[in-house]
Amino acid sequence: MIDQKGIVKAYVRYLKLQRNMSGNTLDAYQRDLRKLLDYLEHEQLAISDVTLADLEHFSASLHDIGIHPRSQCRILSGIRSFFKFVQLDGYRDDDPTELLESPQIGDHLPEVLTTQEVDRLEESIDLSKWEGHRNRAIIEVLFSCGLRVSELVNLKLSDLYLDEEYVRVLGKGSKERLVPISPKAIQELRFWFNVRNLMKIKPGEEDYVFLNRRGAHLTRTMILIMIKAQAKEARIQKTISPHTLRHSFATALLEGGADLRFIQALLGHEDIGTTEIYTHIDTSTLRQEILEHHPRNKKTNLK
């Protein structure tokens, strides 16, 4: 068993003695590394077992708690430095950060799917396989409710109020919120329950909504792999993840005229500033709106 505390101490010593970092810089590196270590502890992951998918989820969680993209980039830079050290010192054979992307700096909206693309994603699922209805329900619940993937994997049957068309969500900081669920998502859940009711479920896992073939609740990584594979099957060229469906949910609401405070409450954002990312409309769309609707741009017949 690798001594994780020992690795961290060795890394701090390396930064101090070999990279000659000042006290303030060293403190900043340690604070950023602590964010990752807290995340790994919560997910019950060891430094030696961390994968690229785990780090992508960690990166997405930084956005969820309202950390600015510039700060996210700084944190991820420190994480890359840490895992390079871990590899060079022989604690791991590989560096899981090699393909880890940083968020774009600026006010660009994250990648989103249109409703038509979500439909294509769902229609590409093979319903002859036992997990087909489960996967359709997962995609529809993510898109219809805007859940974080961590919220989805922990969703319980006792959290569902399908007759009232609501789900209870346990979000960041153990804060509960009620989120409306669409009739389509309810229908997909009921199809999945027809399959789920025939499964042998592990003791202690009976209340989880989404299960794997062994009757245990799903992990974030399982859902990430499923959605990426389904996007490939649907021939969607965008780089997507479970978080993309959350972004798509918020964007669809905003385009439909929903108030930003309402979207904030549904997403479970602490700070309205985190939700405001969805107000940045693509400039090409904005230009088209001006050309079509501003009186100075309307064509007139001059004689």
Score class of each variant (00 low, 15 high):
residue 6 G to Y: 05
residue 166 Y to R: 07
residue 290 I to A: 01
residue 167 V to F: 08
residue 93 D to N: 15
residue 271 D to W: 10
residue 27 D to G: 00
residue 37 L to P: 00
residue 17 L to R: 00
residue 265 A to N: 04
residue 139 I to P: 00
residue 57 H to K: 04
residue 107 D to A: 08
residue 171 G to K: 12
residue 182 S to N: 08
residue 208 Y to V: 07
residue 37 L to I: 11
residue 112 V to S: 12
residue 280 H to K: 04
residue 110 P to M: 13
residue 220 R to H: 09
residue 161 Y to R: 12
residue 118 V to I: 08
residue 212 N to K: 09
residue 223 I to F: 10
residue 53 A to V: 14
residue 303 K to W: 06
residue 220 R to S: 10
residue 136 R to F: 01
residue 285 T to Q: 12
residue 10 A to E: 13
residue 225 I to D: 14
residue 266 L to K: 04
residue 52 L to P: 01
residue 298 K to A: 01
residue 42 H to P: 01
residue 55 L to M: 05
residue 16 K to N: 05
residue 260 L to T: 01
residue 221 T to K: 12
residue 153 V to F: 10
residue 4 Q to M: 12
residue 3 D to R: 06
residue 224 L to W: 15
residue 288 Q to K: 15
residue 271 D to Q: 07
residue 97 T to W: 10
residue 284 S to Y: 07
residue 291 L to I: 13
residue 278 Y to S: 13
residue 288 Q to I: 07
residue 165 E to W: 06
residue 90 G to K: 07
residue 293 H to L: 04
residue 134 R to M: 12
residue 282 D to P: 05
residue 201 I to V: 15
residue 41 E to P: 00
residue 149 V to K: 12
residue 5 K to F: 03
residue 249 F to R: 01
residue 259 D to A: 03
residue 69 P to M: 09
residue 47 I to P: 04
residue 205 E to T: 09
residue 18 Q to V: 04
residue 181 I to D: 06
residue 257 G to W: 03
residue 299 K to P: 09
residue 82 F to Q: 00
residue 44 Q to E: 11
residue 136 R to T: 02
residue 290 I to Y: 15
residue 260 L to G: 00
residue 39 Y to I: 04
residue 12 V to E: 09
residue 266 L to G: 05
residue 107 D to Y: 13
residue 166 Y to G: 06
residue 209 V to N: 12
residue 77 S to Q: 01
residue 227 I to D: 02
residue 76 L to R: 01
residue 186 I to N: 04
residue 190 R to N: 14
residue 193 F to T: 06
residue 39 Y to L: 05
residue 77 S to V: 01
residue 294 H to P: 01
residue 266 L to I: 09
residue 142 L to C: 12
residue 170 L to S: 07
residue 8 V to N: 05
residue 295 P to S: 03
residue 285 T to H: 15
residue 2 I to Q: 06
residue 88 L to T: 10
residue 53 A to S: 05
residue 116 Q to Y: 09
residue 301 N to E: 14
residue 8 V to P: 00
residue 222 M to T: 13
residue 165 E to C: 06
residue 131 E to S: 03
residue 297 N to A: 12
